[in-house]
Design a protein around this nucleic acid. Sequence first.
DNA 1: ACACTCATGTAAGCTGTTACATGATTAA
DNA 2: TTAATCATGTAACAGCTTACATGAGTGT
Lengths: 182, 182
Amino acid sequence: MAKGTVNLRYFVLGLLAQQPMSGYDIKRFLKSLDWLIGSPSSGSLYPVLRALLQDGLVTVEVIPGIDRPPKKIYSLAGAGRQALDNWTDQPAVPGAPLKGFVMRLLLAGSLPHTRLVAHLEQRRVQVAAHQKALKQASAGPDGATGSDAAAGSGQHLAQDYGLTLATAELAWLNHTLERLSN
Amino acid sequence: MAKGTVNLRYFVLGLLAQQPMSGYDIKRFLKSLDWLIGSPSSGSLYPVLRALLQDGLVTVEVIPGIDRPPKKIYSLAGAGRQALDNWTDQPAVPGAPLKGFVMRLLLAGSLPHTRLVAHLEQRRVQVAAHQKALKQASAGPDGATGSDAAAGSGQHLAQDYGLTLATAELAWLNHTLERLSN
DNA sequence: ACACTCATGTAAGCTGTTACATGATTAA
DNA sequence: TTAATCATGTAACAGCTTACATGAGTGT
């Protein structure tokens, strides 16, 4: 598999699907949404681009910058489109970090709407399950056989926090899904 | 520094501050809040415990389980308390992932309330800044000099998502901070 | 003179995971 | 007898970051 990352690999592929870009362009774009997903460092990004090139998933066009360092504009190749589709077809791994979901959201532009809806619905199921679990945990944790360890006040705080976020996310998912069926 | 992680290291230290536990206990406890922070694998947890022991930050008591494998109960040592305090004193790194904040939340039980409040306030500042940035981005991105790359519909979705979560988190922070001043 | 943006890249290291190995006890 | 829970651990590697290196142009 020629060495290279896995997550970032497909995410970059997805970005290139929306528009051909250089490595530097990608970094600038991602820096603008730094808080959500964090932008990759050169140390991870450039190797990924080279790996994608070596695997024939993208093509380059070198634009010799007049007065500027030359730019390497990467574009999605046929095989890249294939690989990307394969990837977006499979559902997100259950315990995927938030980051993964936001990434998929960002790729929405290069996704058939049915697939986007499917992803959102999948997320809804997972968040709902999580919310339910947190509610149960908050409700009746006390008493039992010594139900558990380290039940500091922090645990309650964290559960409350998680519950709030999960509820907000669910509301957004419902609202967005409804909006998308128009 | 005897090899070992950095994040997990202090988090484990914080858990042990609330209550002596074995490695397995820690895993079980964290698995119950898997969604929020994900629980560490044996491959990271056990080496951390050994490193903490080697550095004299914790002590062990081996309880030879009758009928069970022996348990190693780790407790915070004096030097460990020191190290932990040092760590909790310094503010979270600006771009810290959500995970980091929730971890600190979980350690609230072994924190003086002033420090907890400080952490929450710091977080409030950061989330507020983030929220503001997202609002600006959503408001006037169109038009300019070709303001930017890959502005797919996905970007808008992700921004909206982020804005919703940030707003919910801010509300929670305000509410919680208010509650804590009683 | 200094520093910053543009633009690419390499080397070394940290943090963590996956997958395996061990071994005893209990439930299907 | 097959699997799951309890309990600890190791080896290999994936994925990323930090810090460096290069080099031109632009602004103060």
